[in-house]
Design a binder for these strands. Structure first.
Length: 302
DNA sequence: AGGCAGGTGGCCA
DNA sequence: TGGCCACCTGCC
């Protein structure tokens, strides 16, 4: 057991400089359900990685358990989307002709889209139907705790003071071996059947997830829609947050409210709203969606 | 205390 | 196609 449980804090490469609120919105605003904050330090888990982020001295710092440091150093930039030019991407949204979008962007300057592991993103959003973020986080924490592999040896675990997120999420292969009843006991409710059936399906088709992730947007979405429990909204979330497809435009209740109130689409259903979004916001509609979503969540009832 | 929650699928006209 | 409703169950 090493004496130093965590590596030293290191500056995050790149020029991402979010406000505390924008950092929180990015990590814990509904894209990912595997980050939590304590004493101004964010701890997050994905694949076999654990990382901490801290905003200090006007910049972002990261560290990882020493045993995982190398893996996290490689994976973190991709996970946080540091390899994409978000300033240029955001600038190419139609904010010049859309005052509401401009306002959303201004108040969440630095908002990012994560690039999470595809399979984990699918699992997260299969849990998300009619659930709030806190509850989704609970479901995933239980799934990880009971059915996922430990991330660290028990000794490093103790010195890292990781009470939560001590296990990674189960892989789809692992999920296929879990009886539906045990899934239900992870607070999944009716979502357990969807996850169970999807897991069996994925287990029957080797590299189905990998192939789907590599497909262009439309083809990938068509394949995701074959899974039980995956509809338009979930498929778009998985492709936006887990495959980097910025044309995906998930329409949930927040986006529905946003477009109803700010764009006059009162009474519109999800499908026409999605069509409106794609044509109005263009090929980066998913990025625009994230700004609208963040704004609507914050300013909810007004 | 009980309705509601970041959807989906199935059934009906 | 379009509208409705059951589905689980813990939280606010």
């Amino acid at each position: 057991m090493s004496k130093l449980a965590w590596s030293d804090w290191q500056p995050l490469p790149g020029d991402w400089n979010p406000s505390p609120a924008t950092l929180a919105e990015t990590l814990d605003g509904g894209q990912s359900f595997r980050w939590h904050c304590a004493d101004s330090i964010w701890t997050g888990t994905w694949s076999g990685c654990v990382a901490q982020l801290r905003l200090d001295e006007g910049r972002l710092w990261w560290r990882a358990p020493t045993t995982l440091h190398l893996a996290v150093a490689t994976a973190l930039p991709r996970y946080l989307g540091l390899n994409r030019d978000w300033v240029t991407l955001t600038d190419s949204l139609p904010w010049r002709s859309d005052v509401h979008l401009a306002q959303c962007i201004r108040s969440f300057l630095g908002l990012r889209l994560l690039r999470q592991p595809f399979g984990e993103t699918l699992l997260g959003f299969l849990c998300s139907a009619t659930k709030q973020i806190v509850q989704i986080k609970q479901m995933l924490a239980l799934l990880a705790e009971r059915h996922g592999a430990p991330l660290l040896s028990s000794s490093s675990l103790a010195t890292c003071h990781l009470s939560l997120s001590s296990h990674r999420l189960p892989t789809w292969a692992e999920l296929a071996a879990v009886p539906e009843k045990e899934l239900r006991q992870c607070l999944l409710g009716f979502r357990a059947k969807f996850i169970h059936t999807s897991a069996k399906y994925i287990a029957r088709h080797p590299d189905w997830l990998g192939e789907t992730e590599r497909l262009p947007y439309a083809a990938a979405k068509a394949r995701l829609l074959e899974l039980p429990g995956v509809g338009e909204k979930v498929a778009d979330c998985v492709l936006l947050f887990g495959a980097g497809k910025l044309e995906a435009f998930p329409v949930d209740t927040w986006v529905l409210k946003s477009l109803a109130r700010r764009y006059g689409l009162t009474g519109w259903k999800s499908a026409p709203v999605a069509h409106f979004g794609r044509t109005h916001f263009g090929p980066l509609a998913g990025l625009a969606q994230q700004y609208l979503f963040a704004w609507e969540r914050k300013h909810g009832g007004r």
